[in-house]
């Protein structure tokens, strides 16, 4: 992925998180907890379970639609990071060839089931993480983490990281553009030049860190970062978490997919 795509995707995802929809306005803590529950539930499914995972697609789909997040964008991002999971999973069909089912006359091996299960889990977990940031501003996520017991030092510097991510990415982009303009036909693109460029970026960064620190001192910084507590759990948030938990529990502990299948078969007959 080239620099520009990464940079613009980053900005796009971040901008999405400042929209105002019902999903965005939920308390960040509620969303962090719900996402955590979702991930644990999905990952807890056994290796050969595919059908049981399917109902969980509801969660990302609801989040994306209610949160007005473009699904194509999320899917593209999921695809971009998929190679490792695909790589690890693709061996299963060849190594685990016991036939476990015959669907439409074709024998299905256990390996294919587990591969499908990995892919499905991958899509579910990755999209859940992306949707969490797409529907919750990053400072919101950080404050949620803080309130959920993360060490304050970690959260403070995470907020600084977020603040300067875009500034430094932009600076890096200027450097990359200047580099592209002067590195022709693959020459001058190697590790030595890279080290020098990143060295320049690092020097600028360290200078900047010093200026930021001075700016903080000028506004009375004395070691800790004060904040106005603005998070408030409303009953909507509690209801949201409760519904999510019930949904997840139901899909995990009851064969929802099969039940629906049976029902459909019954009606069809």
């Amino acid at each position: 992925m080239n620099f520009h795509t990464q940079y613009f995707d980053l900005g796009r995802l971040d901008r999405l998180s400042y929209r105002r929809t019902a999903v965005h306005s939920l308390d960040p803590r509620a969303k962090v907890i719900a996402t955590g529950l979702f991930l644990v539930t999905v990952v807890s499914f056994p290796k050969y379970d595919v059908a049981g995972l399917v109902p969980f697609l509801l969660f990302p789909v609801l989040a994306a639609t209610l949160g007005e997040i473009p699904i194509g964008f999320i899917l593209r991002k999921v695809l971009i990071v998929s190679p490792f999971a695909v790589f690890v999973g693709i061996f299963s069909p060849f190594l685990d060839t016991r036939t476990v089912a015959v669907i439409a006359g074709l024998p299905v091996s256990a390996g294919w089931l587990s591969f499908a299960s990995i892919l499905l889990k991958f899509a579910l977990t990755v999209s859940a993480a992306l949707l969490l940031v797409a529907t919750t501003s990053f400072p919101g996520v950080c404050h949620a983490l803080r309130r959920l017991g993360c060490p304050p030092i970690f959260v403070s510097q995470l907020l600084f990281l977020y603040r300067y991510l875009f500034v430094l990415a932009e600076e890096a982009m200027r450097i990359v553009r200047a580099w592209d303009m002067r590195a022709f036909a693959g020459r001058g693109r190697g590790a030595t030049v890279f080290a020098r460029l990143v060295g320049v970026l690092l020097i600028r960064t360290l200078d900047r860190a010093e200026r930021i620190y001075q700016a903080m001192l000028c506004r009375g910084f004395a070691g800790d970062i004060p904040r106005l507590g603005t998070l408030r759990l409303r009953s909507v948030d509690l209801v949201f978490v409760a519904i999510t938990a019930v949904f997840l529990g139901a899909c995990r502990f009851f064969p929802v997919t099969e039940g629906i299948g049976l029902l459909a078969q019954g009606i069809w007959r």
Binding site: S137, F138, P139, C142, L159, F160, Y162, R163, Y164, V167, R208, R211, I212, A215, M216, C218, R219, G220, F221, A222, I225, P226, R227, L228
Partner: peptide, 29 residues
């Protein structure tokens, strides 16, 4: 506490994650 300084580069000066938090930083301190 007496001298308010506006720096040449606002990116160095706006170090908090939102505008509100940033403007509130000084008064809170």
């Amino acid at each position: 506490r007496k001298v308010g300084s506006v720096f040449q580069n606002p990116d160095d000066q706006l170090f908090m994650p939102t505008v509100f938090d940033d403007v509130a930083f000084g008064p809170l301190n």
